[in-house]
Design a protein around this nucleic acid. Structure first.
Lengths: 214, 214
DNA sequence: CCACGACTACCTGTTTACCGGTAGTGGCCG
DNA sequence: CGGCCACTACCGGTAAACAGGTAGTCGTGG
């Protein structure tokens, strides 16, 4: 059976090279590729791939959002998250958004093939790096309870703006809430992420693709 | 003539895929690959490649440092910098360290082949993204003069610590200088980099590989 | 229904960052 | 030599971040 694949990654060189890696298998056909987050939908609709290999850090739209929208509107298409990072929060985010598999770029190419194989059989897959991280997340669950759980929608919004370089006052204005409220969010975020300064917030946000940094 | 190539990138998947891209040309032979910065030397000595394709953000050692040491101790080996970023400062840093070419991963695969071709003829090469950035740097030269030039050694040291999350007081203690001095450095750095907060400093530092963020 | 969590909002503080000026040292270069 | 620059150091002042408390609303779920 022929498998139609859509490649989405902002590094053209990586896309081209990955295409070669995939098309060594004659069953695989890379029907389209793009480096722009917003274009993923258009191409997904036009080319009707079976699988989308999706990078996190895309210009235009966030990986989690893309995944959420694809799984919501084009449920036949399976999303394999291809990421630089093996951060617990982000992995869970992608899986919750509907990604069928998660493979880090640090993993071997064969991991991607395994993921494709698993996804084809309607099963999910996590590369070793990711499973390790998830295990940590599970064993950290006690700590999570102590230090709060994951970030709320509003908190993510604030975090993005903080890590972009806005002051709390500017954020308050943009979100049309009080300065004090923004500061409460900041503190809650820092407590949850277990950091103690804007530097920590910025690093976390960049690590998890909340802000681009290009 | 056969060309021996060493691949250094912390993403195994990218290395494998790039190997396929390169070895489509029968003249090219990828003699070794690694994901660890420190291992680059060992492999470079053992395998005597003609060219090293070197990623910036490597665990173990900074891309600039690796380049500096390779060009200093193994001058026959040409370094092609393969980077995610097209930041002016970093490009200049790599070229000053002795890199023969600079290609961003966002560029087409053919750019890398062009770079290899140019390097083989003892010429240097910059991919379009990079040349654009350098042009900006040149046209910014008037501004550079106005806002200071590049960072001094001590300033880089302070910047690293700031972007790691230390407060000025902690930095002062670590470097054994007065708090006020640290603050002067901070301000000078911000002026030179044209940013206005720790967020900007952190982002710059991460972008340029001064701190790891993994 | 009531508890819980997320979000909203305000208060008072302390610490840190940020901005400006001044000034002494040592090294490098015209 | 004298100017330039990086680095060192201190001062004062404003703005922002950071830390703690209190409290109201709203929706979810036991």
């Amino acid at each position: 059976m022929n498998l139609r694949i859509l490649l989405a990654d902002d590094h053209q060189m990586f896309r081209e090279a990955l295409r070669l890696l995939l098309e060594r298998n004659p069953d695989f056909e890379v029907v389209a590729e793009t480096g722009d987050g917003l274009e993923v939908f258009t191409l997904a609709r036009e080319t009707a791939p079976n699988i989308v290999c999706l990078d996190i850090d895309m210009p235009g739209l966030n990986g989690v959002e893309i995944t959420r929208q694809i799984t919501a509107t084009l449920p036949l298409i399976k999303v394999i998250a291809l990421s630089t990072f093996s951060d617990r929060g982000y992995i869970m985010g992608m899986l919750n958004a509907g990604a069928a598999a998660y493979v880090t770029k640090a993993a071997a190419g064969v991991e991607l093939l395994r993921a494709i194989d698993a996804v084809r059989r309607n099963r999910s897959y996590l590369c070793p790096d990711a499973t390790d991280a998830v295990k940590e997340a599970v064993s950290d669950s006690y700590q999570r309870q102590a230090s709060g759980t994951k970030l709320g929608e509003r908190e993510v919004q604030v975090l993005k703006l903080v890590a972009t370089g806005f002051t709390s006052a500017q954020i308050a204005e943009q979100l049309d809430i009080a300065l004090s409220t923004v500061e409460v969010h900041r503190r809650n975020i820092m407590r949850k992420l277990n950091v103690d300064s804007v530097v920590g917030l910025t690093r976390y946000a960049i690590r998890n693709g909340l802000v681009s940094n290009t």
